[in-house]
Simulated assay, not measured.
Amino acid sequence: MRGRDPENGQYFDDTKRYIDACEALSEQDRYKIFEGNARRVYPRLDARLKAQGK
């Protein structure tokens, strides 16, 4: 749902802030969610990002 919460102005579908706020997740878990899994599933993307120094 693309819309803003009238109480705080945040977008309802901004899941990153929910993941960042979840105390049950470790930094390694967050890395996997935001980047690691995508690099594992898309090895050509990973290789291209590594070639760019990222």
Results as ranks from 00 to 15, higher is better:
Gly36Arg: 00
Gln52Tyr: 05
Lys50Glu: 04
Asp29Gly: 01
Lys32Arg: 09
Asp5Thr: 13
Gly36Pro: 01
Ala21Pro: 01
Ile33Thr: 02
Cys22Ile: 05
Arg2Leu: 11
Asp13Ala: 06
Pro6Phe: 03
Arg44Glu: 15
Ala38Gln: 02
Ala51Asp: 02
Met1Ala: 03
Arg44Trp: 09
Ala51Thr: 02
Ala38Arg: 13
Gly53His: 00
Arg30Ser: 07
Arg4Lys: 12
Gly9Arg: 07
Leu25Gly: 07
Gly3Thr: 11
Arg44Val: 05
Arg44Gln: 06
Thr15Ser: 10
Pro6Gly: 11
Gly9Tyr: 04
Asp46Pro: 00
Glu23Ala: 07
Arg4Gln: 13
Asp20Arg: 02
Asn37Glu: 04
Glu35Arg: 01
Arg17Ile: 10
Asp46Phe: 01
Arg48Ser: 09
Arg2Trp: 06
Gln28Thr: 09
Ile19Val: 04
Leu25Phe: 03
Glu7Ile: 06
Asp5Ser: 07
Phe12Ser: 11
Arg39Asp: 04
Asp46Ile: 00
Lys16Trp: 04
Arg17Asp: 09
Glu7Leu: 07
Ala24His: 13
Arg40Trp: 06
Arg30Gly: 08
Glu7Val: 14
Tyr11Arg: 10
Lys32Met: 06
Arg40Val: 13
Thr15Glu: 08
Asn8Lys: 05
Gly3Met: 06
Glu35Pro: 05
Glu27Gln: 08
Leu49Met: 15
Arg44Asp: 12
Asn8Phe: 01
Gly3Asp: 10
Phe12Arg: 10
Lys32Glu: 09
Tyr11Ser: 04
Val41Glu: 03
Met1Cys: 08
Glu23Thr: 12
Tyr31Phe: 06
Gln10Phe: 13
Ile19Tyr: 01
Arg48Glu: 11
Lys16Thr: 06
Ala51Met: 06
Asn37His: 06
Gln52Thr: 04
Tyr18Cys: 07
Gly53Arg: 00
Gln28Met: 09
Ala51Val: 05
Arg44His: 14
Asp5Ile: 14
Asn37Met: 04
Met1His: 15
Ile19Glu: 03
Ala24Met: 14
Arg17Pro: 03
Thr15Tyr: 15
Ala47Arg: 04
Gly53Lys: 00
Asn37Cys: 12
Asp5Lys: 14
Asn37Gly: 06
Leu45Glu: 03
Leu25Tyr: 02
Asn8Gln: 06
Arg30Ala: 09
Gln28Pro: 01
Arg17Asn: 00
Asp14Ala: 09
Asp13Thr: 02
Gln52Ile: 00
Gln10His: 15
Arg40Met: 09
Arg17Gly: 15
Ala51Arg: 08
Val41Thr: 15
Phe34Gly: 01
Ala47His: 02
Val41Gly: 08
Ala47Thr: 02
Gly3Trp: 12
Tyr18Trp: 08
Tyr42Asp: 13
Ile33Glu: 01
Arg48Pro: 02
Gln10Asp: 15
Glu23Phe: 06
Arg48Gly: 07
Lys16His: 10
Val41Pro: 14
Ala21Arg: 10
Arg17Tyr: 12
Glu7Asp: 05
Gln52Val: 00
Tyr11Gln: 14
Gln10Met: 12
Ile33Ser: 04
Tyr18Asn: 14
Ile19Ala: 05
Gly3Glu: 07
Tyr18Gly: 12
Ala51Gly: 01
Pro43Asn: 09
Asn37Val: 11
Gln10Gly: 14
Pro6Ile: 07
Pro43Tyr: 04
Gln10Asn: 15
Ala21His: 07
Phe34Cys: 02
Cys22Tyr: 04
Cys22Pro: 05
Ser26Lys: 03
